[in-house]
Simulated scan of single mutants.
Amino acid sequence: MMDERFGLDRKVRLLGPVPLDSGGSFAPVEIAYETYGTLNEDADNAILVCHALTGDQYCASTHPMTGKPGWWARMVGPGKPVDTDRFCVICANVLGSCMGSSGPASEDPATAVAYGMDFPVITLADMVRAQELLIGHLGIERLHAVIGGSMGGMQTLTWASLFPQRVARAVVIASAARHSAQNIAFHEVGRQAIMADPKWRGGAYYHESDPPTAGLSVARMAAHITYLSEAGLTEKFGRRLQDRTDKSFGFDADFQVESYLRHQGLSFTGRFDANSYLYITRAMDYFDLADAHDGRLAGAFDGTKTRFCLVSFDSDWLYPTAESRRIVHALNGAGADVSFVELSSPFGHDAFLLDNPELDRVVSGFIGASA
């Protein structure tokens, strides 16, 4: 008989509660998720894939809103580096997001209207605590691996810190153990763009069916620049004009790079909620794994038995290699089993999402290695 807990487009309401770093707790919590592959009898072949800021649970299946392949379909699937013929892969929409998990767009049971800005301010640790409830619901005691890039890597580190006994391996790609002042600054530009849009209405825009798309589009454009590299932008666009032979001497999208960013911004507004963008970027800005350990990052991993693999990219200036090295040094200080590699790519931070045979070999080799 098929276990209804597993498969595509799953959603569960868990009583929880989820304890929150801001104080109090959140319950009940809804979690939307997908699973790929089959959980074995011993329930020891499960891999949790954690998504980035604007990602979702559709890592290896067609996105229902865009019709595009999953954001990591090149990595997750039968015979792929994260092989669903061997592993049961779980990917859950994070708490605070907008693809089915509890977030500001969800209905508040106390009022029967969307939470809006009454949704509690959350942290990455809160997201991981909600995921831990899901893993328990699925009957999994210990994960074979937790894998994530960018914000997904931050969740992976948090899993290994909060629930080390439940994580055998942790793969952290293009990530960091804290958000820098520069990271926070870029996020604040995006948040201010959203909140300056008159259609934001203090976050109470759901009943109007007229969301702050202009502000959200600008926020996405600003963020998207940080995901790329100067070399990549120059190679792809340079100073080439868009559909014209001369400058317009106006403020249309004269350059290809302008047109590209506008397209990225507008297409994003069709699949993401502005309030969720506010909440998740704030959660990332609050992230500093050393905070709870008197500023000592190694303290987050003291005594851990989890095995770690860290990967950075040489053109990633959002989470540069120095951030990964800082984590490696802390793990060494905690006596953890850790491996690290810096890969070469011209594509900046987004390299973890793109075709990279070296990354494939690193991930498949690490998660397939014997304990």
Rank of each mutant, 00 (worst) to 15 (best):
Q264T: 01
D44A: 03
D42F: 00
M127V: 10
Q264D: 00
S339C: 13
K305W: 01
R262N: 11
T269G: 09
A181E: 07
F237T: 06
I367G: 06
H293E: 12
I280A: 10
V94A: 13
G365R: 12
S345P: 09
K199H: 10
H187G: 14
L343F: 05
R166L: 12
G270V: 04
F6C: 05
M65G: 00
R326F: 00
F352Q: 07
D3W: 00
L266M: 13
A292V: 05
A292M: 06
S344Y: 04
T306D: 06
R86T: 05
G100C: 02
L216A: 11
V121K: 11
I194F: 05
L310C: 11
E235A: 15
G190F: 01
F249V: 12
F340V: 11
G37E: 03
F352A: 11
Y227Q: 09
M154A: 14
D246V: 14
P357Y: 09
S324V: 01
G100L: 02
D294G: 11
S267H: 12
D83N: 13
D246T: 15
S324H: 08
L228I: 00
P346C: 10
A196C: 08
I122G: 04
E342N: 11
G23F: 02
R296S: 08
H137P: 10
T226E: 12
S344A: 14
L310S: 02
F87S: 02
V146E: 04
E235M: 06
G250H: 08
S315A: 13
A298E: 13
A73T: 01
Y277T: 13
T269D: 08
T234R: 15
R271Y: 01
G24C: 04
Y115A: 10
G16I: 04
T54K: 06
A170V: 09
N275Q: 07
E4I: 05
I280R: 02
P64W: 03
Y319D: 06
G139H: 13
Y227R: 12
V18M: 04
D288R: 06
D273W: 11
R178M: 10
P346W: 03
S276L: 10
H179F: 14
A27C: 11
E34T: 13
P81Y: 01
D252Q: 13
G24T: 01
L261M: 14
G16S: 14
S25I: 12
T269F: 09
T306H: 04
G303T: 13
N356C: 13
Y260I: 07
E141H: 13
R239H: 12
E30D: 12
D44M: 03
R240A: 15
H329I: 07
H263V: 13
E41D: 14
D294L: 08
A60D: 00
P120K: 05
I140M: 08
A114F: 02
Y286L: 15
G250R: 13
M284H: 05
T245C: 10
A114L: 07
A52V: 07
L241R: 13
F237C: 14
L233S: 07
T38A: 14
G348K: 11
G203Q: 06
A145H: 12
R239S: 15
D273R: 12
T213D: 07
G100K: 03
S97G: 07
G202I: 09
I367K: 01
P120E: 08
F287R: 04
E208G: 00
L343S: 05
M221F: 03
S61T: 10
F6T: 10
A283P: 07
T213P: 00
